[in-house]
Simulated assay, not measured.
Amino acid sequence: MADKLGILGFGKLGTVLGQLAVRAGYDVYIAGSGTPDKIALTADILLPQAHLMLAKELLGQVDVVILAFPLGKYRTLDPLLFKNKIVIDAMNYWWETDGQHPEFQDPVLSTSEMVQAHLNQSHVVKAFNHMGYHDLLDYADQSDPKKAIAVAADDIPSRAVVA
């Protein structure tokens, strides 16, 4: 198990995943869409244990990183910064946030396959995208056998790390 976890995105999902990761014993590194000072006050209250930094700095610290931001922004990522990293794709297409993107509605190619093609030197694993952030937080401390997080990837070792 990796002892460090990076999270790109400090919205509701990124915050909840950060809180759960800290509870699980991870050293959490988090970056929002701007400079760390833009999220510092919120982080001090909701996730004071996290290390706030720029995305580029974060990627130099971790081998596993969660993408928890609007899917329409994945193309802004520099693939070289993700080389050999396990990338957990927690993104979903929400046209209300992402705008209209017909390519995200293509039934032949999944959005994670698009992310993998863009981050072609990383190992993309799909997880944390099918349960709402509030449910993730509410059910994390319960042993309800009816709740589970699906993990999907072509790369078996990376999938095992994420699981």
Rank of each mutant, 00 (worst) to 15 (best):
I7P: 08
I7E: 03
G9D: 04
F10Q: 03
G14I: 02
G14E: 04
T15H: 05
V22M: 00
G25M: 07
G25Y: 03
I30C: 10
S33I: 12
G34E: 04
P36C: 05
D37P: 03
A43M: 01
D44A: 15
I45A: 06
Q49F: 02
L59K: 00
G60D: 10
V64L: 01
F69S: 02
L71R: 15
R75T: 14
L77E: 07
P79E: 11
K85Y: 09
K85E: 01
K85G: 07
V87G: 05
D89M: 11
N92P: 13
N92H: 06
Q100S: 12
P102R: 11
E103G: 01
F104G: 07
D106G: 10
D106Q: 13
P107A: 07
P107V: 12
V108I: 11
A117K: 12
H123G: 02
A127E: 01
F128N: 00
H130P: 04
M131S: 10
G132P: 02
Y133F: 14
Y133K: 02
L136H: 12
L137S: 07
D138Y: 10
D141Q: 08
P145I: 13
V151N: 13
P157R: 01
P157K: 04
S158W: 03
V161M: 04
V162G: 10
A163R: 15
A163T: 04
